[in-house]
Amino acid sequence: MEYLSEIILIAIGAALINNFVLHYFVGICPFIGVSRRVDMAFGMGCAVIFVISVAAFLSWTFTYFILRPGAPVTTWVWGAINPSSEAIVDLSILNYIVYIFVIASSVQLVEMYVRKFFGGLYKSFGVYLPLITTNCAILFACLMIMKHICGVPAGQMWGLGEAMTLAVFAGIGFTIAIVIMAGIREELDHCDVPGPLKGAGITLIVSGILALAFMGFTGVDRSLAELFK
């Protein structure tokens, strides 16, 4: 029960309360760039959910077993090379490089998969699929997972379940935000926007108002936590 309530809290926190786009400001570039039409925005959201899950799974595995201070694999290798040493091996300085490598390769993987099995979808994505590599949201999810593994006492470390929940629901939160934005922008096309604000300016102001609306979710997690007690 405790585990379940923790999972639910992480899910709601990632998707609504601390929405990646509207609270942490990550993934703004596709949020502004690809939010012109609802179907494109939804496709982008689905691609992000998929990539973020793959990247989170790989980066959790790498961080937990190889990179964190005192990780099992590195300790075993170090022990095999240097049996008399008592030192704790810490490879967490390599975190960022490993994450960006993992993200780049999982995007490549998704691209090959989509091209092979969904030709039409691949054409409609065009340049946006490789651009997911530089989507801050993915790296941010990896960093959140890292924050809960490196430098945390062993009992409170996140397992794969928590990490995957965070990643999937962060992707869902991104999709919600970008689809709402695309719907608003489709309507904005028929409005008389002042010249200098056309394009990115009005999009940013609308996202500000959206962020204001999402601030209404603040505190939901606390009352839910009380409910579960």
Partner: peptide, 11 residues
């Protein structure tokens, strides 16, 4: 807070 950032940058 986050909304202020979006609105200020837009303006």
């Amino acid at each position: 807070l986050p909304p202020g950032a979006f609105i200020t940058l837009g303006l």
